[in-house]
Structure formats: structure tokens, C-alpha cells
Design a binder for these strands. Structure first.
Lengths: 120, 120
DNA sequence: GGTCGATATGATGAATCCATCAAATCATCA
DNA sequence: TGATGATTTGATGGATTCATCATATCGACC
């Protein structure tokens, strides 16, 4: 039984439905060479190796990323340009959501956003 | 403890991570008056009432829709314009995904797409 | 072949999601 | 007030996801 279009879309969104995986995809989206090694992702996320690896496996399963082993290192990149498009729109959607939220919550989230920028 | 930006985004994607909920959001996105009653959604999805209602509750929880009771009927609409944006990009992403899939699977999914258009 | 660094997979328990059926709630009307 | 249509919520069991720790696999090098 082949999946319906909605089921394929739902799978794509499932891949995006976890904060760590969003973070990883954003790092890949923003990376200058368009890809990052697992080691670099580990450094930038501060995660434990097997934790990140399990999430990367989910991203591979749902075809949001592609991987490429070169020697002992594995590089990941977004599988499709429109994955980046989803990230961009989600950013715009979040801004829209935040515009309608309490100003104290907004201030707090803006602080976190500044901190994230600084870390990068 | 307030949620991080990634957590808020993850919640939005969780709301999208089920085929029925995608279908509902697309129906709302495409509806001429920009909203539909639960009754209309029931008719168009063919779901059982409490099944749909549980999914609508998830969409409300993650703030992807807004509801509005008028008499005995409840109307739903997308909570933000960018929810529609996410749907549009996911459509483009799916097309991108399908371009790289086997042609027999592609043909099958295109048939389903045609059938869906016809039903509407 | 063995060691080591890099990465992936397996096992497990807790939490969450999903589908289904039952019951409750809300609004309207006689 | 009770009945009815519309909709929501609750309860429950099974499936899936998540986090964590342990183990396995891969590639490079001696």
C-alpha cells in the first residue's frame, strides 16, 4: 500500500517536529559550504554523540537530509532546497505568532534569539 | 520554564505531522470564505465526528487554527497567514521529493492528486 | 590485524500520540 | 424543561517517539 500525498507530507513534518532536529536543519541551512560534518554538528549543538545520531537517523528516514561519508567523517546536507523554504516560512510564522503573544513572553524569546545569534 | 524558539517551532510542526490534520488545514486554506464549519469539515473529510474533533483540538492546542462558535455551529480558520505559507512550501517540497522518486510511484501519487482534485 | 577516532545502532523505560468508543456539553426549539 | 442536533471531552489500549546508556560498525593508520 503506497502512502497518500498527505502521508508523505506528514512524514516530512514529523521529521521537523522536534527542537533538536529543527536546530540541526537550521545549522545545515545556514552553513557556508551547505553541509556540516557530524563532528561540527556535535560541537554546535552540544549534544551527546548517540543522541545526535539518533536524530540524524530520523532526518535520513524522512528524507530531509542526505549523508556522505568521506573517510572517517560523515557530512550532512539538506536533501531539498524546499526544506530550507520550510525553515524560512516557519521563521516567518513564528514571528507572526509572537506578534500576538504577551509582550513579556516576546521579550524573553527575543533574548534567547539574541543569545543564539551570539553563540553562532 | 518558557519554551525556546525551537520548541515553539517544533510544536507548530507537530500540529502538521498527521495526514488528517494536513488535510483539514488545506481545506481551510482553500476555502472560499476562509473558514469552514465542523459539519463541512466532516462532510469533506468523511471522518467520524469525535475523530475529527480530537484532531481539531490538537490544531487549537498548537495554535494553527482558531475557532468561533455561532449558535450550534463552530467555524474554524487558519490562525495565521503563514500557516498557509507552510502548506504552500510543503506542496513545493513534495513536488521536489517526487521528482527524485521512482516514476511508477510518481505516477501513482499523481493519480491520487488528480482524484483529490476531482472530489473537490 | 589491532587500535583508535568517528559515527551508527541496539535496548530499554517513560512519555506522547493515535484510533476508537462512550459520555458530556452547548445551543436551539417546542 | 426535555429533546435534538452539533460538537467536544474522556477513557482506554496499542503504537510510536524520546532520552539514555551500551554496544557495534566504519575507516584510517601503524
Amino acid at each position: 500500500m503506497r502512502p497518500s500525498l498527505s502521508e508523505v507530507k506528514a512524514d516530512l513534518f514529523k521529521g521537523l517536529a522536534h527542537p533538536v532536529r529543527i536546530r540541526v536543519l537550521e545549522l545545515l541551512h545556514d552553513a557556508e559550504p551547505g553541509e556540516l560534518s557530524v563532528g561540527e554538528l556535535l560541537a554546535q549543538t552540544g549534544l551527546e554523540a548517540s543522541h545526535l545520531s539518533q536524530h540524524l537517523a530520523v532526518l535520513r528516514r524522512y528524507r530531509l537530509v542526505e549523508s556522505d561519508r568521506r573517510g572517517s567523517q560523515v557530512y550532512y546536507r539538506l536533501a531539498y532546497a524546499n526544506v530550507g523554504g520550510l525553515l524560512d516560512v516557519s521563521r516567518a510564522l513564528l514571528a507572526e505568532v509572537l506578534e500576538t503573544t504577551h509582550s513579556d513572553a516576546t521579550a524573553h524569546l527575543e533574548e534567547q534569539q539574541e543569545a543564539a545569534r551570539w553563540v553562532r
